[in-house]
């Protein structure tokens, strides 16, 4: 039987090993370095995620606060309180009774739309947010005539058990 030529694997494997090592290192560098070439891209991605979470929570809270439906105010109040904590939760709770009677008497409905949200100073657990929102207000018997109210709000959001809640809410007037 003819013998196969002997192949020495040592050197080729050593070279292949070095090449593989270099390529793996290149892949790691490409995947971990920032797209812009700066040092802040991982921070930027993290900040983007946080901004998105805070924006969602702040928008929902503002729409709940500005939205009014005199026929279903209990639902509105529950929604607001679900996203509130700290000072804002206390202040809102103190005003709930007068809010309920005022909306019952005025027979108001308000549809709120958030127009813009932006993030100010932010840490892992605290963020200041500016929200521009409009409320279109109608009264029963007004033949559908709407009144536009443009609002500027500043919210302080805090992270509690994975949720961003509104700790302070202020109308910027």
């Amino acid at each position: 039987m003819a013998r196969s030529p002997r192949v020495r694997w040592g050197w080729p494997n050593l070279l292949l090993g070095l090449l593989a090592l270099a390529l793996v290192a290149a892949a790691v560098v490409v995947w971990t370095r920032p797209a812009s070439g700066g040092t802040g891209d991982a921070d930027a991605r993290e900040l983007s995620r946080r901004q998105w979470e805070v924006t969602e929570a702040a928008s929902a809270e503002v729409e709940a606060v500005l939205g009014v439906d005199h026929r279903r105010m209990r639902e509105v109040v529950t929604r607001v309180q679900d996203g509130a904590t700290g000072d804002f939760a206390e202040e809102y709770a103190e005003g709930v009774d007068s809010l309920l009677s005022a909306t019952r008497e005025s027979r108001i409905t308000a549809r709120a739309v958030v127009r813009a949200v932006a993030l100010g100073p932010v840490t892992r657990t605290r963020a200041e947010v500016l929200v521009a929102a409009d409320a279109r207000v109608t009264r029963d018997g007004s033949a559908g005539r709407e009144q536009l109210r443009q609002h500027r709000l500043r919210l302080t959001m805090v992270e509690r058990d994975g949720r961003w809640l509104t700790e302070q809410l202020e109308f910027v007037r």
Binding site: G38, A44, R49, W52
Partner: peptide, 12 residues
């Protein structure tokens, strides 16, 4: 959107 709102912290 969550990934691209902020792509540079120094520029922010």
């Amino acid at each position: 959107t969550a990934e691209r709102a902020i792509s540079s912290v120094p520029a922010r």
